[in-house]
């Protein structure tokens, strides 16, 4: 078995994925990846035929796609962990996520993904590529608990719990009757989330919507 990729190499794969697969770039300039042509991490990827360097551009090869996809997946799962569960917001959250992602190997990502109930988007709204565990869970039709942001408009669920990152805000929600066990209907997702509890409607922003967890 090959050795694990270095963290730097993983970062390159991640950037390539974001820019070429999710974005509309054909390959990436070396300068925008901030790597030298002969740097160790790039050579590492070239050796495994994950990427190809032509001129001053790097291209993600077919062989590298699964690895890149999983790297992105780990990164975004790490973001979910730091921001939703550990409640670390902003730049600090990003930093922590960057460190965490490299630890999510050898099945740790699967466990985390199951713990987080197979989320489909990262806190910034970008898609998390599904892992095998996600596909498996979907097959079994597990109801699962997801953030309010994961529901589709018109979908009905029950509030499972409120993640308490800000005590005051949670109390406010609770005093307005948004309590675990209440049935909610998500009515609209943009520009703010609108949901219905009983006969009342509430508008919340995505920060708060992420903290309301729903059992579908």
């Amino acid at each position: 078995m090959l050795e694990r990729l270095s963290e730097e190499a993983e970062e390159i794969l991640e950037s390539l994925w974001v820019m070429t697969v999710e974005g509309d770039n054909v390959g990436c300039l070396l300068t925008s990846l901030k790597v030298e042509t002969n740097s160790a991490e790039l050579l590492e990827l070239v050796q495994r035929a994950f990427v190809e360097v032509r001129g001053d551009r790097v291209y993600l090869r077919k062989e590298g796609r699964p690895e890149a996809q999983m790297t992105v997946r780990r990164h975004r799962l790490a973001e979910r962990l730091t921001m939703d569960i550990l409640g670390i917001a902003g730049a600090e959250g990003n930093d922590q996520a960057c460190q965490f992602e490299h630890l999510l190997r050898q099945g740790v990502d699967t466990k985390l993904c199951t713990l987080l109930n197979h989320p489909t988007t990262c806190p910034h709204g970008n898609p998390i590529p599904p892992g095998e565990c996600c596909i498996e869970a979907r097959k079994q039709g597990e109801p699962g608990i997801v953030a309010l942001t994961e529901l589709k408009s018109g979908e009905i669920g029950e509030i499972a719990y409120l993640a308490a990152s800000d005590d005051k805000k949670m109390q406010k929600l609770m005093s307005m009757g948004v309590l675990p066990g209440s049935q909610v209907t998500l009515m609209q997702k943009f520009p703010s989330y609108i949901f219905k509890v009983g006969n009342s409607q509430f508008a919340v922003d995505d920060m708060l919507a992420r903290e309301i967890h729903i059992r579908r």
Binding site: I194, Q201, A203, D205
Partner: peptide, 12 residues
């Protein structure tokens, strides 16, 4: 300071 959080009841 942090950005404020938005929540509001939408009356009929």
């Amino acid at each position: 300071g942090e950005n404020p959080v938005f929540y509001m009841e939408i009356p009929p």
